[in-house]
Design a protein around this nucleic acid. Structure first.
Length: 300
DNA sequence: AACCCGGGGAT
DNA sequence: ATCCCAGGGTT
């Protein structure tokens, strides 16, 4: 952190206090934000929330935890059941990785979600963000938790920039670490509050600076600059892409009671090459089984 | 570093 | 019609 104000002794405690009060008043009541949520529940919520808005995750998470209350319960489930329960959350490879993760937790850790960041990082589907999120939100340890929201808040508030880079870097972790108060519990509360601030107030396109509890110290607000108007990313099309066709095939197979013939898959998109690209990709990803007789199904 | 991977709600 | 979202894995 190069900003001089942050080096003032006690500044982090003040930030944590202000953000803590703001979160207590304004934080959303998500189903996994309860004292009885297990580390497994936290892990599931984090994986489901990777690139998927939490509002869409909440009902699926509740159903999921009722069906598979522990990693061991989930590890024993058939992959097809897992993919159907995942439904339309998107990026179904996450569901498969979560399945592999649960199996690894059973084998390596006796069915207990590890509390060590490095052990978490070694699990399938657990990366820089999710490992720290579990260690902090489930085990109340003191680590920086840096997601897209925290990167944006820190970029604006501490660095007076309109936005952050597109991926989490070592510098992002160091910047977030520099903001944490010394007490792990207070640090954990600050991290979730910063994430919530980014989700509700310090949003990507239309930040509500009038509602921001830390606007007084915000470098970007003080700079007087305004956000760039044009699209911040390259234009992304979806309809007709491989991802779209993959999604169509997965939806077809999720809803099918029995293996489907190739001709049924032909109906999801008119371009054969695109269709084949999508189908072969799904098979190599382990999301689809190719069965004898040119038939296809979710993996068994 | 760049690219791939879904889907829906907001604007 | 376009943007955005509690990212991770592969190359």
């Amino acid at each position: 952190m190069s900003d001089g104000a942050l080096k003032v002794s006690g500044m982090n405690a003040v930030l944590a206090s202000v953000m803590g009060h703001w979160f207590a008043e304004n934080g959303r009541e998500l189903p996994w934000r309860t004292p009885e949520t297990t580390a497994w529940g936290v892990l599931v919520s984090e994986v489901m929330s990777q690139q998927t808005p939490v509002a869409r995750v909440a009902p699926i998470w509740t159903e999921w935890m009722g069906r598979w209350p522990t990693p061991a319960d989930f590890a024993d489930a058939p992959a097809a059941d897992v993919l159907r329960a995942w439904g339309r959350l998107g990026y179904p490879r996450r569901a498969l990785r979560l399945h592999e993760c649960a199996k690894a937790v059973v084998e390596r850790h006796g069915g207990v979600i590890p509390d060590d960041v490095d052990a978490l990082l070694a699990l399938p589907g657990i990366g820089t963000y999710t490992a720290r999120a579990v260690a902090v939100f489930a085990y109340r340890q003191r680590h920086p938790v840096v997601d897209t929201n925290v990167r944006r808040v820190v970029a604006r508030w501490a660095h007076a920039k309109p936005d952050a880079g597109h991926a989490t870097t070592t510098a992002d972790l160091r910047d977030a670490e520099a903001l944490l108060p010394s007490e792990p519990e207070e640090a954990a509360r600050l991290s979730v509050a910063l994430m919530e601030l980014g989700a509700l107030v310090c949003t990507a396109r239309s930040p509500r600076c009038g509602d921001c509890p830390i606007a007084r110290d915000c470098g970007f607000l003080a700079s007087g600059e305004s956000l760039p108007e044009g699209p911040s990313r390259k234009p992304q099309r979806y309809h007709g892409t491989t991802r779209y066709v993959r999604g169509q095939i997965m939806a077809l197979l999720r809803e099918a009671e029995h293996p489907v013939a190739r001709v049924a898959i032909d109906g999801v998109w008119h371009e054969t090459a695109r269709r084949e690209e999508a189908l072969s990709g799904l098979i190599s990803d382990g999301l689809v089984d190719a069965l004898p007789g040119d038939r296809f199904a979710l993996p068994s």
